[in-house]
């Protein structure tokens, strides 16, 4: 703080101390202030990022068990265990299923809604808000509503089914329907996010392209596939990859709606697997190894994304 004050009261006439680093000349007080302002960021980054990342690698090479307190170096045995473990692969498989279904339905539905919301219709703003509302509402509170919807005895969904004369379902309590129930919920919850992204992309498309296509007699259908969709590609890429990456991080709704992996482990996603290994079974070493395997997957996905971003985008100029 003292440094700032002294810099503040320095008359411009008095020369500030300079220092030459490489080719450039810097003012010494500016370097000091600049670096001091970064110190809080660096401290937090060290404690929440650098140290944990180093330690998670170390832990993954041990058999550290919180319950028994034993800890010794086991090399890559945790990785061997995981790669040969059915539950691990089941949770990976569940995650892939979740991710694929969410990708197909969420993205296409969001695009469809965004394109319609982009048209001249009444109550446009209000409609957009309703699609966006579930995104903002905290996950646990909205999960509670849906747990009731899915209740096999008193839930509205089964009441509707029986009113229609259809067989009732066990929703979250059957290994056949649990994953679908979770997916329905998370599409409702997350749809608005992608709608907003697509909508902003659509609004960025210059009217002149659309007018030109209309003058050429393009139908709405052609307008979408030939003009809007290609121009939206950067956004679509982003939405698709983020949808996949986020699927590999899903935990809250799974933990609230189907604790302990759901019926026969059918809704245990990879993060739930890691959580259970670490904090239910106390197997910190094994869980760390699983977390690092997950990191590899996410890292590859992010690399694919940057590769896609680097590709040349459609440009009509």
């Amino acid at each position: 703080m003292e440094k700032n004050v002294s810099a503040a009261v320095q008359p411009p006439a008095r020369a500030v101390r300079k220092v030459r680093i490489g080719k450039n000349i810097y003012s010494v007080p500016e370097i000091v202030v600049g670096v001091l302002l970064l110190v809080p960021s660096i401290v937090f980054l060290v404690f929440t990022f650098v140290i944990p990342v180093v330690q998670v690698v170390e832990l993954s090479l041990t058999n550290f068990n919180m319950a028994t307190g034993e800890m010794s170096f086991v090399g890559i045995r945790n990785y061997e265990y995981l790669l040969g473990n059915e539950d691990f692969w089941l949770s990976m498989w569940n995650t892939c299923k979740y991710s694929a279904a969410k990708l197909i339905f969420d993205t296409s539905l969001a695009l469809l809604i965004a394109v319609q919301l982009d048209k001249n219709i009444p109550l446009k703003k209000f409609l957009r808000s309703t699609y966006f509302a579930p995104v903002v509402v905290p996950m646990v509170a909205s999960s509670l509503i849906w747990i009731w919807f899915y209740d096999p005895q008193v839930g509205p969904f089964n009441q509707i089914l029986s009113f229609l004369g259809l067989p009732e379902l066990k929703w979250l309590y059957s290994e056949h329907t649990a994953m679908i129930s979770i997916l329905l919920f998370s599409i409702w919850k997350g749809l608005g996010y992608n709608v907003v992204l697509f909508l902003s992309g659509l609004q960025n498309i210059s009217d002149s392209y659309l007018e030109a296509a209309r003058l050429d007699g393009a139908s709405e259908w052609q307008l979408f596939w030939k003009v809007k969709f290609p121009l939206l590609r950067p956004i679509t890429n982003f939405v698709v990859i983020m949808c996949i990456i986020n699927s590999f991080k899903v935990f809250t709704e799974i933990n609230v709606m189907t604790p302990n992996g759901g019926p026969l482990g059918s809704t245990r996603l990879i993060v739930s697997y890691i959580y259970e290994q670490a904090f239910t079974n106390g197997r910190m070493g094994r869980a760390s190894a699983a977390a690092l395997l997950l990191f590899v997957v996410i890292f590859i996905l992010t690399q694919i994304r940057s590769a896609m971003d680097a590709r040349k985008d459609v440009d009509y100029e």
């Binding site: 980054l45 929440t48 990022f49 140290i51 944990p52 993060v271 977390a291 990191f295 996410i298």
Partner: peptide, 21 residues
């Protein structure tokens, strides 16, 4: 570069050592 790289690492990866810390 240091700060950006922290964005690559999701919370699941750091939560176990952070819990122990």
């Amino acid at each position: 570069a240091f700060m950006r790289s922290s964005l690559f690492v999701p919370m699941v990866v750091t939560m176990i050592p952070m819990y122990l810390l």
